[in-house]
Design a protein around this nucleic acid. Structure first.
Lengths: 116, 116
DNA sequence: CCGGATCCCTTGCGATACTG
DNA sequence: CAGTATCGCAAGGGATCCGG
């Protein structure tokens, strides 16, 4: 660490975490991303099923936000009736490590709170 | 992957992410953790400063939740006036990897949205 | 310095129903 | 199937003041 970095403390890292959460914040956002991430391609109703407890209203809303932030790509398939496919964008894929870590931590955490 | 795991799909991982977010969810929680994490020990007023925008009410509330979930340890120092020190518990430390990843991603993300 | 208590406005978000 | 529209309660969360 240079002298300058010492004076700054860890403000930069903490702000970075805040920046990340700015895009990821939302009751369901990270679960939605992980659903799409693990399946590669996923339809609206599939995600609705993966993420237990979410309503279609919230799914629609948070997917839209993720799309605006370029983390998720939306493709309308020409089926009858229409179906819509979601997948991570190139950029969204850069979150893969974080999702995997969260998943691993969550599995360990469940063991801790349930006592196994 | 065994046949059984294939049938289950990725439900397990997605639920794990959900479990993790159960403890980490909150507008400020992850920023608070990162502040404590990067400094090792941190006092109330310091965190109040690190996490820009947070109010003392919210800091107090979310710290309490983190304490209940055994992620953070609270120590009252016998100074005059009193000061209180927060640090990650052993268990809280297991989040370090996630915090680092989020920080790294946040730094990259800032470059993307500000165009450098 | 570290919070708790109160006040009060804003937002989240679930339920339900409806459309292309 | 993939959403949108509307309603309405509950929670979020800021500001301010207070007490140990």
């Amino acid at each position: 660490m240079t002298e300058n970095e010492c004076q700054l403390g860890h403000k930069k890292e903490i702000m970075a975490v805040h920046d990340a959460m700015d895009v990821l914040y939302g009751k369901w956002k990270i679960s939605i991303i992980s659903s799409i991430c693990y399946y590669n391609k996923r339809r609206f109703s599939d995600i609705l099923n993966d993420v237990q407890g979410i309503s279609n209203k919230m799914l629609s809303k948070e997917l839209k936000e993720l799309e605006i932030n370029k983390l998720v790509k939306r493709t309308v398939l020409d089926t009858q009736p229409i179906s819509v496919q979601y997948q991570l964008s190139e950029y969204g894929m850069t979150l893969k490590t974080i999702i995997n870590n969260l998943s691993a931590w969550g599995i360990a955490h469940r063991k801790v709170i349930t006592g196994k």
